[in-house]
Amino acid sequence: MGKRINVRPRLKELMKADGWTQTRLSEASGVPQGSISRFDTNSRHEDWQVVAIMKAGGWKYEDLFEIEDEGKDEK
């Protein structure tokens, strides 16, 4: 097995920090507002939605998701 990596979405934090509303981000990205609303609680994300949100907000993947790499290989 590989390293254990934990990924936590943080869209709500980014939106608050940058002054985005769900409606405005939905309009700018083409991602349905309901999907934006549930983004941080979903465990799976559509690739096109992630890319569209990153482009609309000017964010990188590392901004949109908190990534914790435990650094050890699991066996």
Score class of each variant (00 low, 15 high):
Asn6Val: 07
Ala28Pro: 02
Gln33Cys: 10
Gly71Lys: 01
Glu46Val: 08
Arg44Phe: 12
Arg8His: 14
Glu68Phe: 11
Glu74Cys: 13
Pro32His: 14
Lys60Asp: 14
Pro9Val: 06
Val7Ile: 15
Gly57Trp: 04
Glu46Ser: 06
Leu25Met: 13
Met15Glu: 01
Arg44Asp: 15
Arg4Ser: 15
Val51Pro: 01
Phe65Arg: 05
Pro32Val: 05
Gln33His: 03
Asp73Pro: 02
Val50Pro: 11
Val51Thr: 14
Pro9Trp: 03
Ser35His: 09
Met54Ile: 08
Ser29Glu: 00
Asp73Met: 11
Phe65Gly: 04
Leu14Pro: 02
Phe65Tyr: 15
Met1Cys: 11
Ser43Tyr: 11
Lys16Glu: 15
Glu66Tyr: 04
Glu74Pro: 13
Trp20Ile: 00
Pro9Gln: 14
Leu64Gly: 10
Leu25Lys: 07
Pro32Leu: 08
Thr23Trp: 03
Asp63Arg: 09
Ser29Trp: 01
Arg8Pro: 03
Glu13His: 10
Asn42Trp: 02
Met15Gly: 00
Pro32Ala: 10
Gly58Glu: 08
Trp20Val: 01
Leu64Ser: 08
Pro32Glu: 04
Trp20Asp: 09
Ala56Leu: 00
Leu14Thr: 08
Asp63Ser: 09
Gln22Met: 04
Ser43Cys: 13
Lys75Ala: 06
Leu25Ser: 04
Leu11Asn: 09
Asp40Arg: 13
Glu66Ser: 04
Asp47Ala: 15
Glu27Cys: 07
Ser37Arg: 13
Pro32Asp: 13
Ile53Thr: 01
Lys16Ile: 12
Gly30Met: 06
Gly19Cys: 10
Val7Asn: 11
Met54Asp: 05
Gln49Ser: 11
Glu46Lys: 15
Glu74Met: 13
Ile36Pro: 08
Glu66Gln: 15
Leu11Lys: 02
Arg24His: 08
Gly30Val: 00
Gln22Ser: 13
Ala17Tyr: 04
Trp48Pro: 09
Asp73Ala: 05
Gln49Gly: 12
Lys3Gln: 09
Glu68Gln: 14
Asn42Leu: 11
Ser35Asn: 14
